[in-house]
């Protein structure tokens, strides 16, 4: 056996009299920690695969679009339709990563440790929600921005799509808020990660199918007005409708969305409902 080359001196317990930050700093730290978690940063290699694969998939159309602009001097891919076009990828990201944010703390009962500290349950939920919103924004805004920068650099024979780009950024914010609220609310109802993933995916599939089937049936029956509302069952179409009404952009696929404030009110109502559910879920966890 080799002799120890150094000696560890026990310097005893040291007290801390440095600064103690408040609840705000704690919430921000939790936000950063959670946001990193949604992309698997600071976690195992395995947890990085899924988010980065999906981010890569989101970038693919952008790369192709830039190539088309540069080589064929053609119009770039539509900014405002991008989220609708990429909805399966976004939905999978939401389903895969929402449980990552909420399930482990519920399953392993870590929440009491947070609550015994300055952060409150509202800070906790807020930080998790903000982390998911930021993650979805990264997923949506980065490809759009890269394409816009590409469009600026490549000298196209047509004017820049600045208005569409900005409208799409607005739409991205709406998408991120709506999807994050729904995703976290659904995922928080089970402490099991697998079930969380399944429930978010099932919800998306359901809205996708319900929107298509109901709209088809209503249209064939001649209820055009009702059909235009039933499309909005799909959250991506709902956001696209609000985006079209709010920024005056073209609806995706020329869909006949209802005009006016209706879709925006539905969006607000869904977000409010999801957040109420999320809060109620954690109130219950708190009392237990």
């Amino acid at each position: 056996m080799s002799q120890p080359t150094g000696v560890i001196h026990d310097i005893g317990y040291r007290h801390y009299d440095g600064p103690r930050l408040g609840r705000g700093a704690g919430a921000v730290a939790l936000w950063v920690y959670s946001l990193r978690g949604t992309f698997g940063l600071g976690r195992t290699f395995k947890s990085k695969i899924m988010p980065f694969l999906l981010f890569g998939a989101m970038m693919l159309p952008t790369v192709v679009s830039i190539a088309i602009m540069a080589l064929l001097k053609q119009e770039p891919m539509s900014y405002t339709d991008y989220a609708v076009f990429m909805q399966p990828i976004i939905a999978i990201f939401l389903a895969a990563q929402s449980p990552v944010l909420v399930a482990p703390d519920l399953r392993h009962k870590v929440i009491p440790l947070y609550l015994s500290r300055p952060v409150t349950i509202v800070d906790y939920i807020g930080a998790k929600l903000a982390a998911m919103i930021a993650a979805l924004l990264i997923l949506l805004v980065v490809p759009l921005t890269v394409q816009f920068v590409g469009e600026m650099l490549i000298d196209l024979p047509m004017p820049l799509h600045t208005h569409e780009y900005l409208a799409a950024l607005g739409g991205s914010v709406l998408n991120a808020v709506l999807l994050a609220s729904i995703g976290l609310a659904l995922a928080s109802f089970t402490p099991r990660r697998g079930l969380g993933v399944a429930s978010v995916i099932a919800f998306y599939m359901f809205t996708l199918a319900a929107s298509a089937v109901l709209t088809g049936v209503l249209e064939s029956e001649g209820h055009r007005d009702a059909a235009s509302w039933s499309i909005l069952l799909n959250p991506f179409f709902l956001v696209n409708a609000v985006q079209a009404n709010l920024f005056g952009t073209q609806p995706t696929e020329g869909l006949p969305f209802p005009s006016g404030a209706g879709p925006a009110l539905i969006l607000l109502a869904v977000v409010a409902l999801a957040l109420t559910g999320l809060y109620a879920r954690y109130r219950k966890a708190l009392a237990a």
């Binding site: 103690r20 392993h108 009491p112 500290r117 300055p118």
Partner: peptide, 20 residues
Amino acid sequence: CLPPDQSATEFVVHMARMSG
């Protein structure tokens, strides 16, 4: 009350930050 997939160091650092 401990998450199994994190190391003790990571977890305790995180909790220290939550304490401000």
